[in-house]
Simulated scan of single mutants.
Amino acid sequence: MSQKLRPEILQNRARILLSCPDRPGIVAETASFLYRQGANIVALDQYTTDPAGGLLFMRVEFDLPDLPAQKKALEAGFAEVARRLDMQWEIRYAADRKRIAVFVSTADHALLELLYQWKTGELAGDIVLVISNHETLRPAVEPFGLPYFYIPVTPETKPEAEARQIALLTEYRVDLLVLARYMQILSPEFVRRYPNRIINIHHSFLPAFVGARPYERAYARGVKLIGATAHYVTEELDEGPIIEQDVERVTHRADVATLKKIGRNIERIVLARAVQWHLEDRILTYQNKTIVFY
């Protein structure tokens, strides 16, 4: 579960994310290594694709006294464990709050949910700028003290627009891009710069109704459930690894406007969950899927 941690806890908390061929002893070796360092494990989650010859995925969260002074030794020591067990791994530090850029167009519901959670301290990261292809949401953003950059996009100006966006992301040292109903398709060249670092909210329960106007298409199809999907962005439209989904039941009485109204609430909640899980290092990806340790 997400929780707001005190600064003195944050500075000494870290997480190991790893994957490797499954075999007996991996959890024991990891835990023993951390014990020898003087660490206290506060959460450990694991998943195997197959206990006999599959892949193991694991997230270990731990506290280590005086962690800032021990980072190099910790990483060097675990590198030896990882080498023996053929691990892909990374150590992430809770005090290193990720910096977020939010991309929007004209819809405000997903953006405002993120801004609220950030302003109240619930979001485990920091929104540092908002980029939009419209001026519409500037009055909603500027009271939060955030820079708002208007970058119009047309088919003819798309390369120049993306170059300006990339320059801003570099200037603001952005770690995560959140597409909060940004109604533009990013170029493959742009997406390749940020693998598993762009989260989109799609206003349907994927893989149903990929692409534009999903509520209109859902209405025409007479669906009884509508939903929303948060996923990492890849070069294939709406085909990236799914992080979170939710649905709500509807009836034949719901017109398109009603579907959109219900859908907006689902979208903002689903996107906020996915962003929070990414910020808390709870997501690993594998074969266009995600393993999410809630």
Rank of each mutant, 00 (worst) to 15 (best):
G263Q: 11
I127E: 02
I269E: 12
R192K: 14
V128N: 11
E80D: 13
K71G: 01
L112C: 14
E142D: 11
A272Q: 08
Y116T: 10
D86H: 10
T170S: 15
Y148G: 03
I127P: 01
T49C: 14
T234F: 11
Q11T: 15
G77M: 02
R6I: 03
Q3L: 14
E135W: 03
V223M: 11
N40I: 07
V223I: 12
F78T: 02
V27I: 15
V102M: 07
G263A: 12
G53E: 10
V223P: 08
A124C: 06
A228P: 01
E90H: 00
L123Y: 07
K4P: 01
F149K: 12
L271R: 04
R99Q: 07
L56D: 06
E267Y: 14
D96P: 00
I127N: 00
Y150N: 05
T30D: 01
A254G: 01
R97G: 13
H134P: 09
K71Y: 04
T154Q: 10
V275K: 00
P139I: 10
L168M: 09
D108G: 12
Q88P: 00
Q11N: 14
T285Q: 04
N200L: 03
E248G: 00
A254T: 01
L123S: 07
A73N: 06
T120I: 15
P159G: 15
S187K: 03
A218F: 02
H203W: 14
E235P: 04
A140H: 12
A212C: 05
K224Q: 12
F33P: 01
F33W: 13
